[in-house]
Design a protein around this nucleic acid. Structure first.
Lengths: 129, 129
DNA sequence: GTGGGTGCAAACCGTTTGCACACCA
DNA sequence: TGGTGTGCAAACGGTTTGCACCCAC
């Protein structure tokens, strides 16, 4: 049930997510998609972002400063978040999937996944300070 | 400037945080501290929780489902979060501080810390399903 | 035609903040 | 007494939702 129907708005949101590296907020997605669909509403953007995240075609990344970010790259990877300017970037690093097993020792439950967010200052913010 | 003055409300909040293992939300802290100070306000709880986090006497942990959690244990450790019932527990695992160095390779910026949140189902929720 | 998707606006919820008063130092 | 801290309530910002209409199937 709840068969998924095509919508050009969702298509546009997904296309934008897949081509950008910005890890945009919902509002940023809204502003970009609005160029193509001037009448689109923020509610529609939220509905579709959550939908895409639910069906695994996007990733939702929560930040400590409020305002979730979305990423069209769904392959597991880690992120760096600059607490100074809010920029979020992908990190290239060796696989550390073994930490799930490390974590599950002495623990009654099932770990399905993990998310690592690295905090600090990005290069630009270091230069400015 | 802004010299820290004693307040029994803050004292009570910190005492509660240090003895509980529940990783409470601000609202849960509010309800508990209210038993001792019936007139305390939620705003005061938030102000003090943020203050304690700022001076390093508490830790703020953001969850993907909204509603930050607070922890009186400030020694670095990792957490498991049950997306089924919202329970958060401490994980005992070997140090993985070396991941910061791994992450900083090929990256222009400074990693100050990281936070790992493991997701899944806790033992209780597995039994119930 | 039917049921999911959209636009709009109101509601929601966790959190912050302005203000007058209270209290530590 | 001077300057933090508190209680209260209003405001805030991100997100969700109810509803009437629209459109893919």
């Amino acid at each position: 049930m709840a068969a998924l129907k095509y919508s050009k708005q969702r298509e546009s949101i997904k296309t934008y997510l897949m081509k950008t590296k910005e890890h945009p907020t919902a509002d940023t997605v809204y502003m970009h998609v609005k160029e193509e669909f001037p009448n689109i509403s923020l509610g529609t953007v939220y509905r579709n972002l959550n939908l895409l995240a639910d069906i695994g075609e996007a990733v939702k990344i929560s930040t400590p400063d409020g305002g979730d970010r979305f990423d069209g790259e769904v392959k597991p990877h880690n992120h760096f978040y600059c607490r100074c300017c809010g920029k979020m970037i992908d990190l290239k690093m060796d696989s550390i999937d073994h930490i799930d097993e490390m974590a599950s020792r002495n623990f009654d439950g099932l770990i399905e996944s993990h998310s690592i967010l690295f905090y600090g200052k990005c290069g630009d913010c270091i230069k400015k300070s």
